[in-house]
Every structure is written in structure tokens, then in C-alpha cells.
């Protein structure tokens, strides 16, 4: 739903999902009355040195040199970096690590004191996109549920397959039939499911009545 823009819009659902992620932060000065952020904390306040998990929608408002919290870059990105150096990046299962690998990384890049995260993101993307192009060109019929992708890559992959099918259909002049709209199809499927379950309900009711 909606288009994917490089800068997510205010209403972007994808971006809302990314900013829900939790990030480990180390407390660097005494934070009064913020103990509720740490479920294991017994005092009202957060003491320096404690690690708390905070949602990205708060963390992204902070500055990198703020006096209260130090943001810790997740291990995930370091692991990917190693994997890129050692093996084919196309084999990394990004979807399993984080469905929003790139978007998430983009937010964290501004908190990375080593300035390496940006490069890692760029390298992973560069190495994987060409592979995406190849597989989307070679998938003909159904979209396979390949789970090695993050959500942006999946979007690219599906768009690739769709364009390819449209193109072949046009070449073979298959497209002149009027088809029912997709929304209508989904709706009628749903309606069928409902009526079916209603039937099952009534039949099971009858059978229970009979047994009584």
C-alpha cells in the first residue's frame, strides 16, 4: 500500500514499523523518575551504567553527543559486515535478522561513532541488488516465498516479477481480457469464507441438537 519513497512520509506504515524497534542504550547520567523504562529496575530513577531498551521513535530524537544516553549499535550489523568479508552476501538471510534491515540501519547510521555502518549498508545493497535482478527475471509464474530478503528487497523483487509478467503478456497479446478487480476478488473470497463458516456453525448446531 502506498508508494515507497526514499524519505518516508509522515503516514508511512513501513516507517512506523521501523521506528517501533527497540535499541539498547547505556545510561550515562542519573535519569530521575525514568525507572519505568527498565522492567527489572526497582528504583524510581535510572542510574548511570544501566542498559535499557528504548524504542527508536524516542532514540531518533536524541543527538549523538547527548549527555543522558549512549546508543549501542546492534550486533547484527557487525555480523553482516563479517559475513560480507567472508562469503557471498547473497546468502545472508537478511529477512531473518531484521525485516527492515536497510531502513533500520539508516536511522542507526547517525549514531555510529566508527562511521562504518553507512558503508556496510551500501556494500550489502550493492552486492545483493544484482542478484535480485537475476532471480526476478527468471521467476516466471508464482512469487516464491523466499525469506532471505528484507522488506525493501522483497518490494523490489515483487515489482521485478510483476513488470516482467506484464511485459511477456504484452508481447503475447494476452492482455485484452477484462478481468475482475483484485479488491472485488478478495472481498468475494472473504464473503465465501464467512458463509462457509456460518454453514458449518449451523450444521454443527443441528448435529448437537440431534445428539441431545
Amino acid at each position: 500500500m502506498g508508494s515507497r519513497s526514499y524519505f518516508p512520509s509522515y503516514y508511512s506504515v513501513d516507517d512506523i514499523f521501523v521506528t517501533q524497534e527497540k535499541i539498547s542504550c547505556q545510561v550515562s547520567s542519573r535519569l530521575l523518575k525514568m525507572g519505568f523504562l527498565d522492567p527489572g529496575c526497582e528504583t524510581d530513577h535510572l542510574e548511570p551504567g544501566k542498559i535499557v531498551k528504548l524504542p527508536l521513535w524516542y532514540v531518533k530524537e536524541l543527538k549523538i553527543n547527548n549527555p543522558y544516553l549512549i546508543i549501542q549499535i546492534p550486533e547484527l550489523y557487525k555480523n553482516v559486515h563479517n559475513a560480507i568479508c567472508e562469503a557471498e552476501s547473497t546468502n545472508i538471510d537478511l529477512g531473518k535478522m531484521n525485516m527492515q534491515y536497510y531502513e533500520y540501519g539508516r536511522y542507526l547510521a547517525s549514531f555510529d561513532r566508527n562511521h562504518s555502518l553507512g558503508r556496510i549498508l551500501y556494500e550489502t545493497c550493492r552486492q545483493r541488488v544484482r542478484h535480485l535482478l537475476t532471480i526476478s527475471k527468471n521467476t516466471v509464474d508464482e512469487i516464491k516465498s523466499e525469506n532471505k530478503m528484507d522488506s525493501i528487497e522483497r518490494g523490489l523483487y515483487e515489482a521485478g516479477i510483476r513488470t516482467n509478467t506484464l511485459y511477456t503478456n504484452w508481447l503475447q497479446q494476452k492482455n485484452s481480457k477484462i478481468r475482475p478487480s483484485e479488491l472485488v476478488q478478495e472481498h468475494s473470497k472473504k464473503r465465501k469464507r464467512f458463509t462457509l463458516s456460518d454453514d458449518e456453525m449451523s450444521s454443527s448446531l443441528q448435529s448437537t441438537k440431534r445428539s441431545m
Partner: peptide
Amino acid sequence: RTLWPLLSFRHAAIQR
């Protein structure tokens, strides 16, 4: 000023 972090956290929560 000691309550500033809390204030800004709550403000971010409202906006979220």
C-alpha cells in the same frame, strides 16, 4: 533541569 530527559521522552511519546 533534572527532569528534562523525562519531559522530552514523554513529548516524543505524544508525537508518536
